[in-house]
C-alpha cells in the first residue's frame, strides 16, 4: 500500500515538474518550432512502452520456467500498459507529423516498427481474451510474449532496409536529436523519469487488481456461488 501511494506521489510530482519544464524551461527548437515540445511526451512514451514489452518478455520466460502466477500477472499488466503507452505514442507522433511533415504517417523504420509492435501486443491481449481462461491463456501468452520480443530487432532491420529502398521525402526527427541543447536534454531526462514512475505506479496497481480479481473468482468457487 505504501509503495503504491509513494509511487503515485512520485509520478505526480515528476509529471508536474516535467510539464512545467516542457512549457517554461526548454527553449523552442530553432528548426522544428513549438511543435517539437510534443517530443517530451512522445519519446518517453516510446521508451517506456518498449520497456513494458521487455518486462512482458522477461516475465513470460519467468512464468514458463517457474510457473509462478505472480509473474504472469506482471506480464499481463505490462502488456496492457505497454499497448496503452504505444497507442499514445503513435497518436502524439501523428499529431506532430501532420503540421511538421504535412502527412499523418510516414513509413520510417521507427514508425513501422512501433506500429508492428502495437499490433503484436494488441494480438497478445486478444489471445488472452479468447484463449481458455487461467493457465492455458497464461501459457499461450507467455509463448507469444517471448516470440514477439525476439521478433522486434528483426522487424526493425527489415523496416530499416525497406525504408532505404523507399527513401522518405520527409526528414526524420532523429536527425536533429544529436544536437540537443542541455536544457532540452534535462527536460527529456525529467520527462522520461516521470513516465517511468507513472509506469511503475500503474504496474503495481494493475498487478494488485489482477491478483484480487483471481482471488474473488476462487472464493466464488469455494463458497459455491458459481
Amino acid at each position: 500500500m505504501t509503495l503504491r501511494m509513494s509511487l503515485l506521489g512520485l509520478s505526480a510530482a515528476l509529471m508536474l515538474t516535467a510539464l512545467a519544464m516542457v512549457f517554461f524551461y526548454a527553449p523552442t527548437d530553432i528548426v522544428l518550432g513549438v511543435s517539437q515540445r510534443i517530443f517530451y511526451v512522445h519519446v518517453p512514451l516510446a521508451l517506456v512502452g518498449f520497456l513494458a514489452f521487455a518486462v512482458v518478455a522477461v516475465c513470460s520466460i519467468g512464468y514458463l520456467w517457474k510457473g509462478s502466477e505472480r509473474m504472469d500477472n506482471v506480464a499481463y499488466a505490462a502488456a496492457e500498459i505497454g499497448v496503452l503507452f504505444t497507442s499514445l505514442m503513435l497518436i502524439t507522433g501523428m499529431l506532430w507529423a501532420k503540421p511538421a511533415w504535412g502527412v499523418w504517417w510516414s513509413w520510417s523504420p521507427q514508425l513501422t516498427t512501433s506500429l508492428i509492435l502495437w499490433f503484436l501486443y494488441a494480438a497478445y491481449l486478444m489471445l488472452r481474451a479468447y484463449a481458455p481462461p487461467g493457465e492455458t491463456a497464461a501459457r499461450y501468452a507467455a509463448v507469444l510474449g517471448i516470440i514477439g520480443f525476439i521478433d522486434v530487432p528483426i522487424v526493425y532491420m527489415a523496416a530499416r532496409w525497406w525504408r532505404d529502398l523507399h527513401p522518405n521525402k520527409v526528414l526524420g526527427p532523429l536527425a536533429e536529436e544529436s544536437a540537443l541543447e542541455p536544457p532540452m536534454q534535462l527536460t527529456f531526462l525529467v520527462s522520461i523519469l516521470a513516465f517511468t514512475a507513472l509506469f511503475a505506479w500503474l504496474m503495481t496497481e494493475r498487478t494488485e487488481l489482477r491478483r484480487q480479481e483471481i482471488q474473488v473468482e476462487r472464493m466464488r468457487y469455494i463458497y459455491g456461488e458459481a
Binding site: 494480438a123 507469444l144 522487424v155 527489415a158 523496416a159
Partner: peptide
C-alpha cells in the same frame, strides 16, 4: 497473431 510476427 501471425501477420505482425511474420511481417519481416
Amino acid at each position: 497473431l501471425f501477420f505482425p510476427v511474420a511481417a519481416p
